[in-house]
């Protein structure tokens, strides 16, 4: 049924740290790799070696520039994927029941055998989290690596989403955001984790941690950098042996 569950036992999701993300796209590649080889239809590419390559991805990294008042502009790398919303509009619009939100852990999934490929769920998602696979004709989306996190054939350290496992900067965290005692919930509370587009009323489970404030020139306690080191060396006023050496070398 594409009606949403009134509540879910757990709220598994991601916490993405915009302060630490270095924009390396490793999560994009590991996601593409895992989800092409495992759950459901592979994520296809079109014209992969041609002039206009494109493909299906469940995770993409944008880079934004923030122009701040009285401070230098800031570059923020921004991974974008399914937020596994509590009030997921993509689920309720589905005419076939292919889209559903799991009661046991809150993961939003697509049953690809029931998907007619109408694309309405992708329209309903404000975050662009769903992409129709051009080869398979079914809707693809982040599964929160449902085939990893419960997979007892994997070593325990690998039982987390591929993007989290691979992130070299430790910018991605996985856990139960419905449990206030969980590490991810504590992280969100401590760092002021935020929802994307709260005005869309989707109640996202995934949270984003804002960039930490940067050191500022002239701020109390901050030491002004040694700007002299950046200037051309000056020999004005050099006298004696050093003055002679300076003049002699200059003439060479």
């Amino acid at each position: 049924m594409t009606t949403l569950p009134a509540s879910t036992s757990r709220k598994l999701g991601l916490v993405i740290d915009l302060d630490t993300c270095v924009g390396c796209h490793a999560c994009v590649i590991s996601c593409k790799g895992w989800n092409t080889e495992h759950y459901g239809a592979p994520l296809s590419d079109r014209d992969a070696y041609g002039a206009q390559p494109e493909g299906t991805f469940l995770n993409r990294v944008h880079s934004f520039e923030v122009t701040r008042k009285d401070a230098p502009p800031m570059v923020v790398h921004f991974p974008r994927s399914c937020l596994h919303c509590d009030d997921a509009p993509c689920v309720t619009v589905c005419p076939t029941g292919a889209s559903y939100k799991r009661v046991e852990d809150g993961i939003v999934l697509v049953n690809e055998d029931a998907c007619i490929g109408c694309g309405l769920c992708a329209w309903a998602c404000p975050y662009g989290a769903r992409e129709m696979d051009a080869d398979a004709g079914v809707m693809k989306k982040c599964t929160l690596c449902v085939d990893r996190i419960y997979n007892e054939n994997l070593p325990e350290v690998d039982r987390e989403p591929a993007c989290v496992r691979t992130c070299p900067a430790g910018a991605r965290h996985f856990g139960d955001l419905g449990d206030p005692q969980s590490a991810v919930s504590q992280l969100v509370a401590e760092r002021g984790g935020m929802d994307l587009m709260p005005e869309q009323g989707t109640a996202p489970v995934n949270k984003y941690l804002p960039p930490r404030p940067r050191d500022q020139l002239g701020a109390a306690g901050a030491q002004a950098p040694d700007l002299a080191a950046l200037c051309d060396p000056s020999t004005d006023g050099a006298s004696g042996f050093l003055g002679w050496l300076d003049r002699a070398l200059e003439r060479l």
Partner: peptide, 30 residues
Amino acid sequence: AGTATGLGGLGAVRLLEPPHTGSNYLLREM
């Protein structure tokens, strides 16, 4: 762009680098 990225409180937000150089389903459809 501020609410979409959650960065609006810091200042004016603009895209610096798109995530991919080509097109994709989202751009063609929406």
